[in-house]
Structure formats: structure tokens, C-alpha cells
Amino acid sequence: MQKNAAPDQHKHTLDPSSEHTPRKRPIYPFLITFIIMFVTWILLSGKFDGFHLCLGIISCAIVAYFSGDLLFDSPRVKGLLGTWIRFVRYMPWLLYQIFIANLHLMYLTFHPRMMELIDPEIIKFKTKLKSDLALVTFANSITLTPGTITVDISTDGQFSVHAIDRHSGEGLPGEMEERIARAFGEE
């Protein structure tokens, strides 16, 4: 988010006349946030009469107006639908990987000589992913896969990962990075 804010501030300081006129906001972040929140409202309330739907529309519009550009601050809106579809296609592979790694961690946990098997170490590697959303997805995928926890990400994509034994850490970054790069269109 900081990366995207930096050129904006630069323009702001160069052009002092824009200080008084409010910057024109794009409408897409507002609409997408509104739709997501309204679907969640319908799911949570479960009432379909006019009164509750009107309340939902009013409160979702207020919240989406104030925090719409927190979630989607990227100017690129055109490829958003394709990104979502490819992201949903990425989910089953991730669930399968999580399941396999869970079984390995269960084996480690119930092993009687567990203290000799584990060998914690911190792995450092550099990734080629650029956008913030892809970096966050990659970090959360690493953390969800048992045996590895993301400790730190620097701004230029340097990862530190805590792995519990040699077998869990050897597959990184590897195939997961390839698949995330394909899902977010960063090949």
C-alpha cells in the first residue's frame, strides 16, 4: 500500500493547486466493496423483507464510501474478474498441499523420538512477485502450509521463513510461487 501511495504524494507536492479541489475517485472500488458487503449482509441477516434490505443498503453504502479504497487501491480494474477466477482455481491445489503437509506434521507430533527429528531453521530467499496482494497471498499460503511460517517480508520481496525440519523447507519457493504468479498475471 505504501508503494502505491508514494507517487501519489509526489504529484501532490508538485501541484499545490490540487490541494483544495478534492481528487476525483474512481467508482469501481466503491462498487466492488459494496457488492461484497451486501452479499455478506444478506448471508448474516437472513431476512428478505424490504425494511431489512433498505437498512442493509444504507449501512453498506456508508461503510463502502469511507473504506472503499482500502481494499482495492490498484488502478487496474479490467483484469479483476479474470484474477478472481484464476484465484479460485488456485484454491483446491492449496488445500491439497495443506492436507499433505498436515499429515507430515501429525507424523512428527506423535513420533516418540520427536526431539531428534525436528531441526528448526530460518530460510531466506528472494521472490519475484511484485504487487502487494500477491505478496500477502504468498505469505499467507506459506503460513497455512504446516511446517513453515513467514517471519518477515521486506519491501523488495526478501522472505524469511521459519521451517520446522529439512523436509518442510526444501520445497520453497518452488511451485507455489509459480502458481501465485500465474493467478495474479505476473509471469
Partner: peptide
Amino acid sequence: RFPDFYSRLHPAGKLDTM
């Protein structure tokens, strides 16, 4: 069972999620 704070996070956070 695990020996230190970093390795305890592995089972506590993720086996519970699964």
C-alpha cells in the same frame, strides 16, 4: 511437546485450522 515458542506455533495454529 514441542521444545520452544517458534516450533509450538506450527501445531497450535495450523492443525487447529484444519
